[in-house]
Amino acid sequence: MMNSKNSAESAKGLNEIEPVKIILADDDKDDQELFKDALDAADIPSDVTAVDNGQQLLDRLKDDAEPNPDMVFIDVNMPVKGGRQALNEIRSDEKLKDIPAVMLSTSGHPQDIEDALSHGADLYIQKPNSFTGFVLLLKKVFSLHWAKTLTNPLKDFFFLSENNISKKD
């Protein structure tokens, strides 16, 4: 027999998914808006906080008044503190090291990808050339996240780009 609390929770509806709490670190305001619009278009319930550089990301993550996000997206190239340095500091911090970190870059160079993997990124996304490509990439990222694949990245799924997304589905 279900108690009233459980039935109330199940009556709330299976369609209501708790929004994913995301911090996006990207110095380009247009890219921040594109990211948010693509999440909306992908029907991914989310609560996005955008910051402009790696230092602001770390300040936000270390703020005890704020809960840790479910995931961070980090642009590789930013002023003040770049994405690689921010990732290194996140992975060396006992309280932050388990937060899934997705690196974003226009580069698809193998050395950049290998560098992100070796420094503890969970996923590396080459920024797409189209809005549709961004929507498809975010859908893939969150299907991996919800399947818990991001907590132990597989090399096959580590690098996503608009060109290889259809090959992996």
Rank of each mutant, 00 (worst) to 15 (best):
D63M: 02
D31L: 10
V76R: 05
L87M: 09
Q56W: 06
F73Y: 03
L96E: 03
K5A: 11
T132H: 10
K168T: 13
I22W: 00
I74L: 11
K139F: 08
P128I: 04
S130E: 08
R60K: 11
P128E: 07
S92K: 10
S143C: 05
A65T: 13
Q56K: 14
D43Y: 05
I23H: 03
S118P: 04
S161V: 12
G13V: 02
D43A: 10
K97D: 02
Q85P: 05
G120H: 12
N164Q: 03
P100A: 08
T49H: 04
T151G: 14
I22N: 03
L154V: 12
G82E: 02
E33Q: 10
E94L: 11
V76E: 05
L61Y: 02
D156W: 15
G54F: 01
S107W: 05
E66S: 14
Q126D: 04
L14W: 08
E162D: 08
S10W: 15
A50H: 01
N68I: 14
E33C: 07
N152M: 10
Q111H: 12
E89S: 06
L138K: 00
E89G: 11
A65M: 10
M1N: 07
A65D: 14
L24F: 03
K139Q: 09
I44Q: 00
N77Y: 07
K127L: 04
E94V: 11
M78A: 12
G133D: 04
N3E: 09
L58Y: 03
A8L: 14
H145K: 08
A50M: 01
D93Y: 04
D37C: 13
V141L: 09
S92A: 15
N164A: 06
Q55I: 06
K168M: 15
D115G: 03
V48K: 01
R84H: 12
V135S: 01
K21V: 10
T151V: 13
D169K: 13
Q32R: 07
I90Y: 03
A50D: 07
E16R: 14
N88M: 13
G54K: 00
L144P: 00
K168S: 05
L136A: 10
D112S: 07
P45A: 07
Q111P: 05
D63S: 04
N6R: 12
V76P: 08
L57M: 06
R60T: 15
G82W: 00
E162V: 01
L136Q: 14
H145P: 00
A8W: 15
F159G: 07
F35P: 02
M71K: 02
K140W: 10
E33S: 06
N68Y: 03
Q56H: 06
I99T: 01
Q32L: 13
D28Q: 09
E94N: 08
L58G: 09
L144D: 03
K155W: 15
L138A: 00
E33V: 11
I44P: 00
E16Q: 11
F134C: 07
L57C: 11
F73A: 01
D59H: 04
K148T: 14
I17L: 09
G133M: 06
P153T: 02
E114N: 11
N68M: 09
V80S: 06
A86G: 04
T151D: 15
A11Q: 15
S143M: 09
E33G: 05
P153H: 04
L34V: 06
P100H: 00
H119R: 13
I113V: 08
Q111I: 14
K29D: 15
D30I: 15
A38H: 01
P67F: 03
A121G: 07
A38K: 00
